[in-house]
Design a protein around this nucleic acid. Structure first.
Lengths: 368, 368
DNA sequence: TGACCGGAAGAGAACGATTGCCGAGTTTGG
DNA sequence: CCAAACTCGGCAATCGTTCTCTTCCGGTCA
């Protein structure tokens, strides 16, 4: 008899271990086993299950039954080898932890699942070398296609060109012009303009742009759009470069506040919501009133944007549509590998919140 | 032009299309092609590349070269069929958009990659039926193992038992007691106690617990831990149930504030950070001072927690360790399918921030 | 009655890599 | 100098499906 008060749990578990090994009938049933059980050929079983070619009703019934009884599950690996299609798509993202990407990922996952495809996920961690390695691996795994948000226009080119030569590729959210591949992106230029016009209409004219360095297309386009607009309409402007992170936002916001009066902005235009969230947080710490002394805008409209204080004015990326379109394009490209490449640009929409419009008027009319 | 709000850049691209089809040498090289190029047998090529058996140096060199030249990439599907191992693991998460999970996912992805395995991602969207379907699909794809954060103790049992009978399974973050499988979780009870002791030491005694309904183990354990502690130490307490979402936090916070004086809390203990963030946001809108009138705590320590206003006091889940441990356990279990199941519980740590400790004293001594 | 047709089912060859086994050639020890 | 050991390379089976050919059979039409 074992001792009382002692790990009941342990004992209880040991017992169930047996159950595990018992239930583990090594491998699941194969076509051949089903065929043997029924007493027909493998081909017939395959046909019944695929339903592609007629089979006698009586035999079909018996096959169905045997398959169910044996818990037959088609081995997708074998199927893939034979049919040259894994029904699997690789998704390569540059920074999983930027909440914009999980949101996108979720939509991609759903869209692909609706096509009956599975999603192989890879994180390139914003590193072109890692990106190349991951893509290579995905291709070795015979993915039917790749959806990639490239790390960098410059350094991702070779990798993507090589990948696109072997397998259908759709660029998502960021594009690389040189590479010939389908692309679904958002119109960053339009987005930045929406924000700037919005700020201008509220009377702002002195802008700092907190952007990301590097050659990612989103970063480049947003930067360029700002510069182009600001050069024409701003009383004063300046570009600060860092990365798409909260930390950079905090840092840059502090600099903006302590800048010499001649350089001080009345609005911070941030290249994404993370930067903006960091900025807001630091400004709050420093006791700067937003939007009173300084307005702040973001880009993406991640969930977090409506939780900061004040809530963040930003531009919404239609990520369900982005994902759906990417999935659709990829499917089309898989069917028609030789079709000419398409580039789709979706238009973002302005979401005005408390970081530009004072609270009491947030709901109501837009001032001026 | 087709749909409004979207414009396509088709024309300028047609030119490069030729380049695509040209570069697409249909399928990548196979072992056989390399063998033909070199003029030896397939087996030899395989051996050179695997390096498992010695091959003459001259021949080996020629094989290497031909392989490189032809851009040979081993077909993992064929390899998997033969070796009965896909080097792929399925990760099933209940809600991708809860930022806690992407953070975990990232770590899992890295840990698995270090083992040379790839990650097949599935979102069960908090729906047991969907969860079952996704798991079935992953198994059909011959994953070497599954890491699952189950939707619900009750409804996931059957699914998981079936899955565990076919393939190694590790439960992550949430567990299901009845099922015999390895599990890596955090000590939710300890976490809640840390928070409650912290609040008590600050002089709070009237608690509302904003928890998630349902049978997910994390939800149950946190709820139970609260009740057990509160019954002994609280002057007043109450449990409100909703789900792990911002929306519920907002809703419940509003109720807390408008409750009759006798039921009003001086602290909101939230079952995760999203609920807490929602609560903070609503409280701010309602002009309730935090932590002055009402303290708020979360659970998880997602990135967002340090960006709310005030910053959120919470309990940190060690998600790198969780992920690493899960990956390690799964690897062990894949090697030793019959070993008895282990359950690992990691301890969370308290992160005290502005939502419980007034700003100026945040750094310094703990009041009282 | 014989040629023909079409449905139903089987035989067997892929798909691409791994691996056990065998044989031919080379070394080595007695 | 011969046998035994050892190297190196090829043949062929295998993993589980799919799919193309055949084969077989009953029925129809001339």
């Amino acid at each position: 008899m074992d001792r009382p008060g002692r790990h009941r749990a342990g004992a209880g578990r040991a017992e169930r271990t047996a159950h595990v090994s018992q239930g583990k009938d090594a491998r699941p049933a194969t076509l051949r086993e089903v065929a043997e059980a029924v007493g027909c050929s493998v081909a017939t079983v395959s046909r019944v299950l695929a339903g592609d070619r007629p089979v006698g009703p009586e035999l079909a019934r018996r096959v169905q039954e045997a398959a169910r009884e044996l818990g037959y599950l088609p081995n997708q690996v074998a199927r893939a080898l034979r049919s040259r299609s894994t029904a699997t798509v690789g998704l390569v993202l540059p920074q999983i932890t930027n909440p914009f990407f999980p949101a996108l990922m979720r939509e991609v996952e759903h869209a692909l699942h609706d096509q009956g495809r599975a999603l192989l996920l890879a994180d390139s961690a914003d590193d072109p070398a890692l990106e190349a390695e991951r893509i290579e691996l995905l291709i070795a795994r015979q993915v039917d296609g790749l959806i990639v948000a490239p790390v960098d226009q410059e350094h991702s080119t070779r990798t993507l060109a090589k990948a696109a030569a072997r397998v259908p590729v759709v660029l998502l959210d960021r594009c690389v012009d040189v590479v010939q591949a389908d692309a679904v992106t958002v119109d960053n230029t339009a987005g930045i303009r929406l924000l700037l016009e919005h700020l201008k209409s509220l009377g702002h004219s002195r802008f700092w742009f907190l952007g990301a360095a590097g050659d990612a297309s989103a970063a480049v386009e947003r930067r360029a759009a700002f510069q182009e607009w600001a050069a024409r309409h701003a009383a004063f402007w300046r570009v600060e470069l860092g990365d798409f992170s909260v930390g950079f936002g905090q840092h840059a916001a502090a600099r903006a506040v302590t800048a010499a009066a001649a350089h001080r902005p009345d609005a911070l235009v941030c290249a994404n919501d993370l930067i903006a969230a960091g900025a807001l947080q630091r400004l709050r710490e420093l006791g700067v009133s937003v939007p009173g002394e300084l307005a702040v805008t973001g880009f993406d409209d991640i969930d977090l944007a409506s939780l900061t204080s004040p809530c963040l004015t930003t531009v919404r990326q239609p990520n369900r549509e982005l994902a759906a379109e990417a999935a659709r394009m990829l499917a089309a490209r898989i069917q028609q590998p030789e079709a000419s490449a398409r580039a789709v640009r979706l238009t973002p929409t302005l979401v005005a919140r408390g970081s530009t419009v004072a609270l009491e008027s947030a709901q109501g009319s837009r001032a001026l």
